[in-house]
Design a protein around this nucleic acid. Structure first.
Length: 769
DNA sequence: CGTTGGACTTAGTACTGGTGAC
DNA sequence: GTCACCAGTACTAAGTCCAACG
């Protein structure tokens, strides 16, 4: 149902602009590395093939062709297509097979409904059967075994997997069956060195993908996929809304948009005047100027709203089997869209579903919030696909794609113009767990690690420049660059591109800070108060060196509150300067660097002091939280937060009651008396004073634990921990730490992250960022 | 050399399905 | 079996940055 989305729409949580803890961070002082990152002693076919070459990007047309490249592309792709189909049939068949005959990994995947990963995470399957400690001891390392043939083509090293014909490879990918030779060696068992542990290569490219001779980066030589899937057409429900209390007839198009708005009744959007105005403007265009409905305020969407609630209810009431059947039907329809074959390797596609029509939900004071986001038609969609691949059939009969392209210098599979701002484009990419994305992810972290070698000089340079003499050429610009770089480095501010005020919410980053966003408080405090990305409030006060303080005051001098603080600066100028300091350096690299190095340092400083595994996990969470605060990653308070807390508080009250009773019983027991009756009037068991004391100790502990849970929840209610995990923390830090401290990686990364960070799993236990 | 378009990364919220308590 | 809860996923908005353009 097209309106399904509307029916389930919930109240949007207003962003919480609560301030984060002001705990001043110690980012400035970076301890020298106790240990250089050492080369991985682990080697095996398995390990080798996973490693992305350090010196240059894996090329789609490397000297070491896959079978696919040896054949003509078109034949090859036909073959792959056939394989894909054959395989999906096979999979359907196999569903009826006895699951016990399947490898654990596939059973796991099936049981969890996870994407049949091309790289099965066998360790996960095993994990449930052994405690992590046992597993760790048994294997010497929890290092996951993976289906390595997937990436053999990227690995110029000779390995016997090259003999496997493509068909077999595809099958292996699908079946996820681990091969004996892929078993992970113990850490330290190898003679081959993969990561030399040296500085990241100078040659590594800024962008993923290999480069052809003309310097143009190239993502693939062959690319097959099925295009995109469109939301079903709108099904009119015929429920009449009221205008001035009277039912109104609407055309299906008008009704569709009315429904979009009607279901938002409870949300903040529906109350937001800008949202309402924008909605009304677009809806009125559909209604026509002469329509009965002349103003939004006289509209009553209640009947539509109720209809949606009923539909929701109906859905809920469906039997488990019905739900399952519906789900499976949906899955089946989507199956072909879920995958792409890129140079013979099957990869998951990310957002293969075209965005359904709806009302634009801009964040913060978005000028376009509430505008109708029109339906995307096939004629809006451009498909990017291999020259020899079959062009995906247009899923809507009688229509056709806007354009077919064969551009291997980009990684997107399809695109269309954003209906809200036509000058912007929406793209369909491979999923985060694809090797393409993995490569670029790894490069991002390698670049950030490279900054480690430059950071001292960079900091020294900008510190010097705070006090650059005014008579020097371009002194003000230089000083602004220095202070901006400092803010980006120390407080993890974003670069801050210029924005179009008419089109976007008024938010700022470093270069676009306004005078009013920073308050200099004598003697040397800076109070930052601004809305950043997603209109998330940044409100923190920091102590700074006097020269910075003075410079800020100087930049503010003679300006009005709305003026730019760094009037000489924009991100182009800043990044151009940064590039002179280190090749490829841009403002965002500092965030990655500081996030990752903070985690690495905190883990290495704090972990040894504590004993059991749960304590170590706490150290990790703590570090994670510090990073989240540093990067100002916030979240809205969970909806049921209040209830959660009051539930826990009640639990404490109950426990305190128990304590009192135990105390009374203890006093009596010491006098040889039997305990009082309990609340229900029943006689309690006679216990010795020792037993009662033990019980009291247990209860006290429970109270303390619960109190800590409450405190933790309060403390973390506005902190988004996931964001940094997904985007800023080099997963190798986490993986290596897990290896060193016998913590199963599954405890730190959920399934999606395990897949996304597949490239990091083989890292040496002594890896340091 | 500033502006714009294009491509890719980062971000928070909405939604869902699985799980454990009852 | 039901239901509430919440962890995990899906979704898509909003950033960054580069290079082509004029």
């Amino acid at each position: 149902m097209a309106d399904q989305n509307y029916c389930t729409m919930k109240m949007m949580n207003p962003l919480v602009f609560k301030r984060n803890s002001k705990a001043s961070k110690e980012k400035g002082k970076m301890a020298p590395f106790a240990k250089p990152s050492i080369s991985s002693p682990v080697s095996s076919y398995h390990h080798q093939s996973k490693q992305f070459p350090e010196q240059s990007m894996p090329s789609a047309s490397i000297e070491h062709p896959t079978p696919a490249e040896e054949n003509s592309d078109s034949d090859d792709e036909k073959l792959l297509r056939a394989l894909m189909e054959a395989d999906s049939n096979k999979e359907e068949d196999s569903d009826s097979e006895d699951d016990d005959n399947k490898p654990l990994s596939s059973r796991y995947l099936k049981a969890t409904g996870k994407t049949p990963s091309k790289r099965p995470l066998d360790h996960q399957a095993n994990f449930s059967e052994q405690s992590w400690v046992k597993r760790l001891k048994l294997s010497g390392s929890f290092s996951p075994s993976k289906n390595k043939q997937v990436s053999t083509k990227e690995e110029p090293q000779v390995d016997d997997d090259d003999d496997i014909i493509l068909a077999q490879r595809m099958k292996n990918i699908r079946k996820s069956s681990p091969k004996p030779k892929q078993k992970v060696p113990k850490v330290g068992s190898s003679s081959k060195t993969i990561n030399k542990g040296k500085k990241p290569d100078k040659l590594s490219k800024d962008q993923p993908g290999s480069e052809s001779n003309d310097g143009q980066k190239k993502y693939w030589t062959s690319l097959i996929h099925s295009g995109v899937i469109f939301p079903p057409p709108y099904k009119p429900h015929g429920v009449k809304m009221l205008y001035n209390g009277k039912p109104v007839d609407l055309t299906p198009e008008q009704e569709e948009v009315a429904t979009m708005f009607g279901v938002m009744k409870d949300s903040d959007y529906a109350k937001n005047q800008r949202f309402r105005n924008n909605f009304w403007k677009d809806w009125q265009k559909l209604l026509g100027k002469k329509h009965v409905i002349q103003k939004l305020d006289a509209c009553d969407f209640q009947p539509i709203y109720e209809w949606c609630c009923q539909e929701k209810e109906k859905k809920k009431l469906m039997s488990t089997e019905e739900k399952k059947a519906a789900r499976e039907e949906k899955l089946k329809q989507e199956e072909t869209y879920k995958w792409a074959i890129i140079d013979g390797v099957k990869e998951a596609v990310g957002n293969f579903r075209v965005e359904p029509p709806g009302l634009f939900r801009g964040r913060g004071e978005q000028p376009k919030s509430g505008r109708l986001k029109r339906r995307i038609q096939p004629s809006d969609v451009t498909i990017n696909i291999g020259k020899d691949a079959a062009i995906p059939e247009c899923p809507i009969p009688g229509e056709s794609w806007k354009q077919i392209r064969h551009d291997n210098t980009v990684s997107w599979l399809a695109c269309w113009d954003d209906p809200i701002s036509e000058e912007k484009t929406k793209y369909v990419y491979l999923a985060a767990n694809s090797s393409l994305r993995g490569q670029s992810d790894k490069q991002k972290y390698e670049k950030a690690r490279k900054l480690k070698d430059y950071i001292e000089d960079i900091r020294a340079a900008y510190t010097r420049a705070f006090t650059i003499p005014s008579k020097e050429d371009g002194a003000i610009l230089k000083r602004q660059i220095a202070v901006a770089t400092f803010l980006i480095d120390r407080f993890a501010l974003r670069a801050g591109n210029e924005k179009d005020v008419d089109e976007e919410a008024d938010t700022v980053g470093c270069c676009t800070l306004k005078v009013e966003n920073v308050k200099a408080i004598a003697p040397n405090l800076l109070e930052f108060d601004f809305l950043g990305k997603d209109s998330i409030k940044y409100h923190q006060t920091h102590q700074v060196e006097l020269p910075v303080y003075d410079a800020i005051k100087q930049f503010q001098d003679g300006k009005s509150s709305g003026d730019k603080l760094f009037d000489r600066l924009d991100t182009n100028i800043l990044n151009a300067h940064l590039k002179e300091l280190m090749p490829g350096l841009t403002a965002k690299v500092f965030r990655t660097y500081n996030a990752s190095i903070t985690l690495d340092n905190m883990l290495n400083e704090k972990t040894k002091q504590v004993g059991d595994a749960s304590a170590r996990v706490r150290v990790y969470k703590d570090a994670n939280k510090q990073v989240a605060i540093l990067c100002n990653h916030q979240r809205a308070e969970p909806k049921t937060f209040g209830e959660q807390i009051s539930g826990l508080k009640k639990k404490i009250e109950d426990l305190k009651g128990v304590m009192e009773a135990l105390e009374t019983d203890l006093i009596r027991a010491r006098k040889g008396k039997s305990p009082l009756k309990d609340g229900d009037g029943k006689q309690k068991r006679n216990l010795t004073p020792e037993a009662l004391e033990k019980k009291m100790a247990q209860t006290t502990k429970k109270i303390e634990t619960t109190e800590r849970i409450i405190a933790d929840k309060e403390d973390n209610k506005n902190v988004a921990m996931e964001t940094s995990k997904v985007n800023y923390l080099d997963p190798r830090i986490t993986v290596a730490w897990c290896k060193r401290h016998e913590v199963p990686i599954e405890k730190m990364f959920k399934t999606a992250l395990l897949q996304k960070f597949d490239w990091a799993m083989d890292v040496d236990a002594y890896f340091r960022f």
